[in-house]
Simulated scan of single mutants.
Amino acid sequence: MFRGSSFHTIDPKGRIIVPARFRDVIKASGIDSIMITRMDRCLFAYTHDQWGKLEQKILHLPEKSEAMRRFQRTFIGGAHDCKCDAQGRVLIPPFLKQYSKLDKEIVLVGVTARFEIWSRENWDQENELMEEDMRNDQVRREIAQLGI
């Protein structure tokens, strides 16, 4: 499982260094590459086994809904298989780099079954939104139900 966060940079060629603790999870899955797609102004990265499970769930969604068809198109259609090189780097495809506004400073965030790749700017905005959410009583109650 992916946990924790770390701050990095993306090089001019569009490569990021995957932290060793994340690489260990990737290697344990048996395939030295990850599936990367887009969502929420960032990139979602999955091991191939997790991606397969998620893809099966998505493929079973009803296609009657225009919104679900659009989601399938962008989430599955925007996915890219990205190989980890010998130095633990992954090349981010240009269209995904552009979508998530990855420029120089990035943040990698472990979210159990996936890790997310954020531009520093978008990550800071996301944290501001979380602070706003924490002022909402309903959100605070939902979090309290987790025992936190």
Rank of each mutant, 00 (worst) to 15 (best):
R38Y: 01
I58F: 15
P12F: 03
V109P: 08
G147N: 10
N122G: 00
G78R: 14
I26D: 01
Q87P: 05
A144E: 14
D137Y: 01
R21I: 07
S100Q: 00
E142C: 05
F115K: 08
E121V: 10
H80P: 00
E105I: 03
G147S: 06
P62K: 14
E126A: 13
K53H: 07
V18K: 00
V109C: 14
I92T: 13
L102G: 02
T112A: 11
M39L: 03
R23K: 04
G52C: 04
A20R: 14
I106R: 02
T9P: 01
V139N: 12
C42P: 00
V139K: 07
F22Q: 00
L54W: 04
R70Y: 10
G14T: 00
I31E: 02
Q138A: 13
D24F: 01
A113H: 11
I31Y: 14
W118Y: 11
R89L: 06
L59R: 15
P19I: 03
G88Q: 10
E66V: 14
T9E: 07
R41L: 01
F2T: 04
D11A: 00
M130L: 14
R114A: 04
D137V: 00
A67D: 07
M35G: 01
Q138E: 13
A79H: 15
E142W: 05
E55R: 15
V107L: 07
D81H: 13
T47K: 08
S119W: 01
D133Y: 14
E121H: 15
W123N: 05
N136E: 12
K101L: 04
Q145F: 04
C42M: 03
G14L: 04
I58W: 02
R21Y: 08
R141K: 14
A144Q: 13
S119F: 01
P12N: 11
H8F: 14
T37I: 08
G78H: 05
H80M: 05
F115L: 06
I34F: 05
G88T: 10
K57H: 08
S65A: 09
R140E: 09
R70C: 05
L102M: 02
D49W: 07
R41A: 07
N136V: 10
D81V: 11
F95Q: 09
D24S: 01
W118N: 09
M68Q: 15
R69Y: 09
Q72D: 01
M130N: 15
R114P: 03
G147C: 07
L129Q: 10
E63N: 07
T47D: 01
T112D: 11
H8P: 02
L129T: 06
W51E: 05
R23W: 01
E142Q: 13
K27M: 03
P62S: 15
L129R: 15
R70A: 10
N122Y: 00
E128C: 06
I58Y: 13
P12H: 09
F7N: 13
P12E: 09
E55A: 12
L54F: 04
S33D: 06
T9F: 05
M134R: 13
L43E: 00
A20S: 14
R70F: 09
F71C: 02
Q72F: 06
M35N: 08
R38M: 06
K13A: 06
T112F: 13
V25P: 00
S5F: 14
R38I: 07
I143H: 11
D49K: 12
R23A: 03
M39E: 06
I16F: 00
T37Q: 04
H48Q: 12
K53Q: 09
Q72W: 03
K64F: 07
